[in-house]
Each structure stands twice: as structure tokens, then as C-alpha cells.
Amino acid sequence: MKDTVANSPVIEARNLQLVFQTNDGPVQALKDVNLTINKGDFVSFIGPSGCGKTTFLRAIAALETPTGGTLTVNGLTPDEARRKRAYGYVFQAAGLYPWRTIAGNIKLPLEIIGFSKAEQASRVERVLELVELKGFGKKFPWQLSGGMQQRASIARALAFDADILLMDEPFGALDEIVRDRLNEEVLKLWARTGKTIGFVTHSIPEAVYLSTKIVVMSPRPGRITDVIDSPLPKERPLDIRDSKEFIEIAHRVREGLRAGHSDE
């Protein structure tokens, strides 16, 4: 294998199909999805409710099994990649264990993977700092605000060396201002760790602000209608959102979403 750091595909979907068998008959959640995500990409998935964003992310993480097409992660099947601990997954709810402290929660994957006690402790310290929760390790989840809990759950996903970070509407339940702050932090995190990030959102500005690649999806059946490569620089202060490029991309995303809706 040649070591081309940039532009080496990490996630590749070819004609991916995913059909759920439900009591009311089959539901086509994903249809003919083709997508290549390269190493170090920040990819946002945006689209109306029910268009299969969560399903796609879950398929990448081997939590759902595709019914057709191919999906590879680092050249492996999603399940093999999962066994190599290729993913950190952040769910919409923080899902911290109430009986573990914040540090204890972050240790959870480390214990399971089998890091030494000393290594666990130093990693916890490192990621707590990364998500700006230094000093909160001994607190229990209920002692933290919703935004802090979500940051702790991101820290948990960062604690082991997964090179792919999958986030499903991690900030969906938070208010605009907290969200802005966390978005900035996520960008910093991404710059510092060089991870490949898949990020589901309903917010156009969030998608445009964060991503190098925006994937616009439409429902029934869930499919990709547009893939936008962002021309924005890697360094992004919050006020980039008032720039001309930003507004242009946001416009294109909106158009894509509208087009997806109108062909029903």
C-alpha cells in the first residue's frame, strides 16, 4: 500500500442499499448511495428527517447491515473495522453511565480495550483537556450541564485511538450559543487530532461551518442528491459565516434540500 496521507479513501460506499423489514412492509432507508470519504475529511450529512442519515452512519459503524452494494472502512468491512476499534461514535444523547464519574465514563472504552491503569489515567486527563472539561473528572454526569455532558461523551469517543469519529446530531438538543462554542471546539479538535469525521446535522450553517464535504440527502428512498466540496479554508473563525463563500455554499445546500423535497 502506498502511503498517500491526503486523499486516501477511508470510507467507501458503492451502490449501497439498506432495506428495513418492518411490520408494514419493507422500508428503503438507503438507495444507491455512492460516497468516498478521504482521510482527514470532515463530512456533514444533512437532509430532512427520515432520509437515512442515522442509518448511513450506523451502517458505517456496523450497527446496521446493508442489504446491497459494498461498504468498506479502511479497506475492511465495517464489522472488521469495528473489531479493530476504528470508530468513536457520539450519539444524539450523551448516554453517560450515571453510576460512573466523568473520568470513569471516559475510561469505559479504555477498560474494554485493555489499556493499563496508568495509560487510562493519562488519556483521561488528555481528552478532558481537549474538550475543556479539565477538573470535572470526579463529577458525576448529573452534576454537569447538557452541553458539558455531550462534551464528555465526545471525550469518551476520543479517548482511544479510533481514527474515525462519527457524530449523530451531537448538539441537536443544545441552544444556539452553546452550539456555536462546541462547533468551534470540534473544529479545533479536528485540526489537532487529524481524525476523519462524519457529522449528522439538521442545521445548514453548522454543516457549512464545520465541513470540508457536505452530503445532501433526500428521503423516500434515502439517497444522496448533492455532494459539495467546501472551498472554505481549514482555519475558520466564527465570523466566516458572514463571508460570501459561506453564504454561497449555504445557498447551494438549501437548494439541494429543496430539490430533494420537490420531486415527491
Binding site: L63, F91, G95, P109, I112
Partner: peptide, 15 residues
Amino acid sequence: MQLDLLQTYATPGSA
């Protein structure tokens, strides 16, 4: 969700 989270770490059943 809690079970899925452990799935993403490929957690063995005993854990």
C-alpha cells in the same frame, strides 16, 4: 443506545 455504544467498541459479552 447504551448497548450500541458498547457495540462500537466491539465489547465482549462478558464486559
